[in-house]
């Protein structure tokens, strides 16, 4: 993933649109992406999102995670929400939510990249095209 967090302004529109597109809800915590403020320490923001590396596929004890068209997907029907993938992810890019019984991750829909006012996520748009 070559996302350019240097350009991030911390607006979190990516988180919001992710929940709107993937859950039909207004809820930035129900999103497969996070903006983390590092202003106090490093005068910058970080953007945390899956780079589709696939490490979680092998970690999943029930085989609920697979790669489809270069996108790592979790099968909610098979997932037991054990949390192993969340802990294993090298990027911290799988997110638990109290109302969702499987980890939420990026499915490369590309909507955040399309709307990001600063082009932080340009590369995700390409992944999105592959996915669609």
């Amino acid at each position: 993933m070559k996302l350019d967090a240097e350009r991030c302004t911390g607006c979190k529109l990516c988180q919001l649109v992710c929940s709107v597109v993937n859950f039909r809800e207004n809820n930035p915590k129900k999103a497969g992406i996070r903006v983390v403020s590092r202003l106090f320490t490093d005068a910058r923001y970080d953007v945390v999102v899956c780079d589709q590396c696939g490490v979680c596929i092998d970690a999943c004890p029930v085989g609920a995670i697979s790669m489809e068209d270069d996108v790592v997907r979790i099968d909610p029907n098979m997932c037991t929400n054990c949390g192993v993938c969340v802990e294993t992810c090298p990027n911290g890019a799988l997110f638990s939510h109290p109302d969702v019984d499987y980890p939420i991750k990026c499915v490369a829909c590309g909507e955040c990249a399309r709307l990001c006012p600063r082009g932080v996520l340009d590369t995700l748009a390409d992944v999105g095209k592959v996915a669609s």
Binding site: C11, L13, L16, L39, A43, P117, R118
Partner: peptide, 26 residues
């Protein structure tokens, strides 16, 4: 750095640094 309010493309917040009498503040 530019700094935005929630879901705002304008990002009118400007994170700045200022020095005065040997002190640096953000």
């Amino acid at each position: 750095r530019d700094k935005a309010c929630f879901a705002c493309p304008m990002a009118t917040g400007k994170y700045c640094r200022a020095r005065h009498r040997g002190e640096t503040v953000f």
